[in-house]
């Protein structure tokens, strides 16, 4: 279980990264935390010609709180966010979701943008980004810098709007809004596993904005009415996700969790188990 050969370039600036991406496009892979890429390299599921290491690009290792969002750079590790005391105030949903991601040892190296780039349908960070209505900033050497809404960025299983020559230079999480209660809940086979169903919630007096991960081929968020209409709306949401059977859970189980856990999460805050 050893990777195929590739050239390795340790970039020292964003410019260099963009140049390399421009040169190699589809044949290049960005190595940030490596928590997904390295495993797929080792298994030869991916065989890039060039691996561009951005771990030492200082300008990509920045977290900024500005203009109503928290911008997280491409080289920022998940642990840097868990260590950020202000996060619970800035982006409480993300603060609640982070402990559910993998394990302490993988959060130590795994990056926030790497998780977004990989676009695993069960991943927590893309789910938060979509639920909060965040965005992804893409840059390339020759093209225009683009800011893509998260809901458009994720296009399906491991598939995103990123073009081969583009770098996800940062992702932007909208800051907490007054009067909104943020909740996160996940059911997995084990602690730290891929979610069978993950739910992210922004609850306001007039409605619930519920994000679902692990069911559709991408994270999906939907605004739902509260009160008597909620069960029917949850049912519609559950069926709309195209849940599928796999070795760990049935489609019916996943739909049922969307309905019942969704209702629990919206109506009974105590059911949001912290980790």
């Amino acid at each position: 279980m050893k990777a195929a050969s590739f050239d390795y370039v340790r970039a020292s600036s964003k410019k260099e990264v963009l140049q390399l991406l421009h040169e190699h496009g589809e044949d290049a892979r960005i190595l940030a935390g490596g928590q997904s890429l390295m495993a797929t390299l080792n298994m030869r599921l991916t065989q890039p010609k060039v691996v561009i290491d951005i771990n030492r690009v200082e300008e990509l290792n920045r977290i900024r709180n500005e203009s109503g969002y928290l911008a997280v750079g491409a080289a920022v590790r998940q642990v840097q966010l868990t260590d950020r005391a202000e996060l619970a105030r800035e982006v409480p949903l993300l603060a609640k979701a982070l402990p559910w991601i993998g394990h302490f040892q993988t959060r130590n190296r795994g990056t926030v943008c790497g998780s977004v780039a990989h676009a695993d349908p069960s991943a927590e960070i893309p789910l938060c980004l979509v639920t909060l209505g965040g965005s992804v900033v893409l840059e390339s050497l020759k093209g225009k810098r683009r800011e893509v809404p998260a809901a458009e960025f994720f296009q399906g299983l491991l598939t995103t709007d990123r073009q081969p020559k583009e770098l996800i230079s940062e992702v932007r999480f909208p800051l907490a809004q007054d009067g909104t209660d943020y909740r996160f809940q996940e059911i997995a086979m084990r602690h730290g596993d891929f979610a069978l169903v993950a739910l992210a919630l922004c609850l306001r007096a007039d409605g619930a904005h519920l994000g679902v991960g692990g069911v559709a081929d991408r994270p999906v968020a939907q605004t739902l009415p509260l009160g008597d209409e909620l069960p029917a709306a949850l049912n519609t949401l559950a069926w709309s996700l195209g849940a599928q059977d796999d070795v760990h859970a049935s489609a019916a189980y996943r739909r049922q969790l969307v309905r019942e856990l969704g209702q629990r999460l919206i109506e009974e805050p105590s059911h949001a188990r912290p980790r």
């Binding site: 059911i187 086979m189 069978l196 069960p231 029917a232 049912n235 519609t236 069926w239 760990h248 859970a249 049935s250 019916a252 189980y253 739909r255 049922q256 309905r259």
Partner: peptide, 18 residues
């Protein structure tokens, strides 16, 4: 006895799809 299998034993009474 995975959660999905056990939930299946408890019974899933699904509302129909819209």
């Amino acid at each position: 006895l995975t959660p999905s299998r056990v939930r299946g034993l408890i019974g899933i009474d699904e509302p129909p799809a819209p």
